[in-house]
Amino acid sequence: MRALKKIIAIYFTTFFINVNGEKCERIKIGDEFYKRHLLATIDGYPTGIVIDPKTENIFFMLNKRNYTKGIYLLRHGSLGVKELLISDDIIGQCVGIDSVNNIIYIGTNQGLVTYDYSRSEINTERPIGDDDVRNIFIDKTDNQMYITTGSNHEIFKFINGSAAVKRFDKVPKAYNFVLDPQGNAFYEFVDGRLYFLSVDLYEPVQYKGFTRELKFILQLSNNDEAIVAVKGSMFKLNTKSILPTKIGRLGFKITGMAFDFRNNIVIGTKGKIYRYKPIDSNDPCPSDDYFMSSI
C-alpha cells in the first residue's frame, strides 16, 4: 500500500511540474502569449522557411557552417526531416508556394522548378527560365509571383500567370521583400539596410535603429503585418514610423521564420525548429501540452 501511495505521489508531483513548471513557460510576442514546441532537431541551421497551408508541411534550406546542404522537408506530424533530392549540377536556393494553384516552386541557380508530392521529388525536366533565382515572394492578394535573381538581386514579376517576366520597378534590387495588402513594399536593400516604400510616397524610407545586417528575415504575419527578425528579436514594421516596434525577444539567434494560417509562428535556429502556438487565455496550460510536447 505504501508503494502504491508513493507511485501516486510521484505521478501527481510530475503532473504538477508539467502544469506549473517548464512546460508552462510563456513568451509574449506582440499582444499574445505563446508556448514553444520543438518540431525537429537538425544538424545545422534552417533558413528560408515556408509552410504549405494545405498540408502544413514545412520546407527550408539546411545550412551548415559556410555552405548549404540543400532543401529539406519536414512533413506535418513527422519526427524527422527529409532532403529533397536534386540533380548535382542544380543548386536549390529557395522555396515558394502557390497555394491557389497547388504548386511548390523551387528556386535554383538554373531557373524555377517544381516539387511533386506524389512522386516525392523535384521535377527539373522543364524549368521556368534559366535565371539564378535567389528568393521567391507570392503576393496573397492577387497571387502574383515575384523572384529575386542573380548576384545583383534584381526583382522581376511574372506577367498574367505566364512564364514571361518584367522588372519590378518599385524595388529595383533587394535581398528579400514583402508587399502588404495595401501595396506597401518592405525590403532589405543590397546595402544591408531595411527600407519601406509606401504607396503614398515616391521615394523609399530607411528604418532607423538597426545596425547593418546581412539577410534580415522578413515575412508577412498572418495578419498581413511586416515582421522582421534580427538576431534574437522580432520587430513589426509599418509605414507610419521609421522606428521598428519590438514585439518579442526569443533568447537565441533566429535563422528562419514563417507564419501559418493557425496564427502559429515557426522559428528556426541553430540545430532546432520550433513552433510557437498562441495560448488560450482561458486555458493557459493546454492539455495536449502536458506530455510529449517536445518529441
Rank of each mutant, 00 (worst) to 15 (best):
N238I: 03
P204S: 06
K170R: 15
Q219P: 04
N135A: 02
E213F: 07
Y146G: 08
V178K: 09
E203A: 14
F196G: 04
D169K: 15
T211S: 11
S120L: 04
E203W: 06
K215W: 01
D139R: 15
F137W: 12
G161R: 07
T211A: 12
L214H: 12
V171T: 08
D130F: 13
D142E: 12
P181E: 06
K166C: 04
D200P: 00
I227L: 04
R134C: 06
N123K: 15
N135W: 13
D139A: 10
Y117K: 13
N160I: 03
N238C: 11
E154A: 09
P172R: 06
E125V: 13
P127S: 10
K236H: 00
M234I: 13
E225V: 08
G183M: 10
F235D: 00
R134F: 02
A174E: 04
F156H: 11
I136N: 04
I122T: 05
Q219G: 02
F137N: 00
S120Q: 14
F210M: 03
I242Y: 01
Y187N: 03
F156R: 14
P181H: 09
I217L: 08
K140W: 03
I138N: 06
F168W: 14
D130L: 13
V133G: 04
R193A: 09
V178Y: 06
R167P: 03
